[in-house]
Computed example of a mutant assay.
Amino acid sequence: MSYTAWILLTASLVGLSCGIVGAFLILRRMAMMADAISHTVLLGIVVAFLITRELSGGHMLIGAMIAGLLTAVLVQWFHSRGVQQDASIGVVFTTMFAVGVILIATQAGNAHLDVKHALMGEITFVPWQTISLPWIGEMPEATFMLSAVTIVLLLVIIAFYKEWKITSFDPALAASIGIPVVWMHYLFMSLVSVTTVASFDAVGAIMVVAMLITPAAAAYLWTDRLSVMLVVSAAFGVVSAIAGYAIAVWVDTSISGSMAFATGLVFLVSFLASPKHGLLSRYVRRSAASNP
């Protein structure tokens, strides 16, 4: 594959995986948790690096997963003790991210790990960092990791689809029929953490937040069915990745920033043109009702 094709494939995998996870985040009213986890995983990555002194490997996923779960646990703990949920997210997110930034500045200064890289990523470097795989040959490491995470994500979503659906729409009903709601919640937080860190190195936290929230929010405007929403959200993520790359080449600017901007364009089109919840369709219905 060409240099451009690897970049587009990697970005599309980010859009696909984040779009699927983001749909459940939107339905569970946990959009800001995506912002929190996409930043707090930095602490898990830094701690994993400080322990192993290696910038790649499974320990990064483990560290990020632990940081993501710790974020969810702390937010829930503060909220259960009377702190508003948005305030809990703000306190935990800023504190853990700040600790990660301090550790980078003081302990990881000589490594290819810095705050700018964490926020914006550098997808243009992805095709140069390769691994050799049997029957496949040379493949970018980030693309391989994202492919593996996407496959695992799809398998888990399919395996527990009924449980995800019920716990997302009615946790009380789920608990009453014996579904382990708390366990499903933390399993979901683990998926969010793993998806985030798999995307983190290539595209940075800004694009991860955009891909987790905006395609799913746009898909929510087009359908009321969960299965359709998952497919549409994933498709919007892929479209945003490809369109964002085209914008970046055209304007000669940041690829990750352009992809994040493209998600905003997708949402704007959906907000205006979706047949049921779109601004234009609502205007047409109101006009038709007032002029029978």
Rank of each mutant, 00 (worst) to 15 (best):
M1Q: 15
S2I: 06
A5D: 14
W6Y: 15
L8K: 02
S17H: 09
C18T: 03
G22W: 02
A23K: 00
L25K: 05
G44I: 14
I45Y: 00
L55D: 12
G63K: 03
G63Q: 11
L69N: 09
A72E: 04
V73K: 07
H79R: 13
Q84P: 01
V99R: 07
I102S: 14
H112C: 00
L113D: 10
K116C: 00
H117S: 15
A118S: 14
M120G: 10
V126L: 12
I131T: 12
L133W: 11
P140V: 10
M145Y: 11
T150F: 13
A159L: 12
S168A: 14
D170Q: 07
P171W: 05
I177V: 15
V181A: 02
F188P: 02
M189A: 09
L191D: 08
T196D: 04
D201I: 11
A219R: 01
W222I: 04
D224A: 09
R225W: 06
R225E: 10
L230G: 09
V232I: 11
A235I: 14
A241Q: 09
A248I: 10
D252F: 03
L265R: 01
F267Q: 00
L268H: 00
S274Y: 12
H277L: 07
L279H: 00
R282M: 14
S290I: 08
P292S: 12
